[in-house]
Amino acid sequence: MKRTLVAFLLTVAAVSAVVLVRGSGGPLASGVPAYRVRGPFRARVKIVVFSDFQCPGCAKAEPVLKALLDRHPGEARVAFRHYPLRMHRWSVLAARAAEAAGFQGKFWPYHDLLFQRQKEWEVQPDPTEMFLRYAAELGLDGDRFRRDFQDPRWTALLTADMETARKANVSSTPTIFIGDNRVVGGTQLEADGERLFREAAR
């Protein structure tokens, strides 16, 4: 009898601890720089992607997201938020390069290039020169890119994204919010993306 009571109290305390620390959503897209947002302002479906340029799962999810958006042209507004995982050596550097491209209005083409060539730059001892080459390929001003790449503004931008991720209880990439619902990874996006998109559009 005593043991049952102790077990009951222990379980109640344990469940309460989990409920207390579980995060919730929030205004995920607010504060994202304009160059990291695409789609019509008044689109009914808001999509927020927490991603890491060096994460293989994020690269795999990209074409799935693109296919979903292609099926619904002009219906969604997509915001990108950085979530560089600690286990990836060059994630932060890649995020900085994408920001530098964003400062020149080319965030999305640079974003696509980083994912397409992920296997190429992630194995470099230092991919900085490669990132500069990608910038040149996209016709960006090299000197400005180099300067912006070193610009300390990226720290604040990255910190803001990480803080939003923490509030939204995100700790894995890619986490994609379609309206208020989330999917993690390309397989979940493929399986549930269409349904969630329709629900969000209602």
């Binding site: 989990v18 209880n169 700790s171 894995s172 986490t175 993690v184 990874g185 979940q188």
Partner: peptide, 18 residues
């Protein structure tokens, strides 16, 4: 268990998928 419960179940589902 606690760290997985703190995060949404979709994250662990994605890890299991791998």
């Amino acid at each position: 268990g606690f760290l997985k419960l703190r995060a949404p179940a979709e994250e662990f589902a994605a890890a299991l998928e791998a």
